[in-house]
Nucleic acid binder design. Sequence first.
DNA 1: AGATATCCCC
Length: 485
Amino acid sequence: MFQPKLRLFKRQPFNFRTLFHTQKSTPSLLPPPKPPHLSLLADKCTSMNQLKQIHAQMIVSDRIHDNYAASRVVSFCALSDSGNLNYALKVFDTIHEPNSFMFNTMIRAQASTSNPFEAITLYIKMKKLGLIPGKHTFPFVLKACVNCYPLNPGKQIHADVMKFGLELDLYVVNGLIRCYCVCGDMHAARKSFEEVPERKLLIWNAVISGYAQNFCSNEALALFDQMLGEGLEPSGATLSSVLSACARSGSLEMGKQIHVYIKEKGIEVGLILGTALVDMYAKNGEISVARSLFDKMLERNTASWNAMICGLAVHGHAEEAFQLFQEMMDKAKIAPNNVTFVGVLSACCHAGLLEAGRGIFLSMERVYGIEPKIEHYGCMVDLLGRGGKLAEAEELINGMVCEADVVLLGALLRACKDHGNIKLAEKVVRKMLHLEPQNHGVYIVLSNMYADAGSWADVLRLREEMKDGGLKKIPGWSSTDGNKY
DNA sequence: AGATATCCCC
């Protein structure tokens, strides 16, 4: 006997026409229209609900064993905005012999999730099955490597790229460069860059942004110059990176020229480019230009507000920085992040607002749920130090979960100098030299403090010890307790 | 079936 359920289903398939607004069927005399190809329908889905119906049809009609049909389902679930990665994974697991197209799709989808290592696992599985990774595999595997930071399997993948002869593919090289940039290996990044025979904009952008993000402003600017020399037109992405390099290196003239270029070329100043411009002007002293550009921005995110607030802070405009901070939360409804608090706290430092700073520091965690990082402690130490509250500053450092760094200790040392606290300074210098044995600057500070106090014997002793190459004889120092503070 | 950018303590 036949299967009644299936017959029923066949006689009355679910209504594709209402789903996809295809033409109404011509009445009676003509043969009934063929149902559209299921795999093609999978591409036209707009929701998981629709896709599940198609998937069901595929299972019922046995087409799910056709790799092409299955891959359409996997593609939709894995990549579409209205898809569902877990569903894709389930379907993928049922496929007996997935082809490289499916692996590429899954790797691409997994690369941008919170679990990018899964993409690399899939890549390894793919190779084990004897499938050949190609130019649609590596860009996504490398993207996964970038997102896996600080874990960095990029070098191994690079070896595979060479093995499969894809080291000249633009998108693959782009991935390699980005991999090396995130882990700060600009030497390797540069090498990959130099080996590309025909450098398209994409490649320039990757390496310029890499230099900018690794604080190598001069290299970024030099490459930008070289790029223009070769007749390439920079994009908004290029200019954002270059402006960031201008901001950090104090290249106001170059920044202004870029601004003019943007206007002349009619390049759209959106969120990111706008923020980069504001930051560039703010860091280069043109705070009012920065402010008027900021006010004209149509869209602003946390980074935009941060750039403006931090800019006001370093220029000593604490009141305006606070106002903006309030406006950001109350009117714009943009959530502050840890960088915002660096800005607000440094506004307190530059204006000497001890009480306000204390309150903001406490509110960070209690009200906004942002755990203070070393930068915030740094601001507080600076603020307390300037106010002469050295004991409180030391107590704050001792209570930190993270290790004190030289920047933070440097702020404390300067406070010791300002308030003539030699005992604490000796302690701090010891710690700093433990972190940075060749930091000669701290000897000078301590020596000057001894001199200010008239302790000439100590000045001479210190001088002798500097010649010996170590501060072993500073009071309280012994080589065995160097690890302790 | 491909990617890229902005904000952070002395």
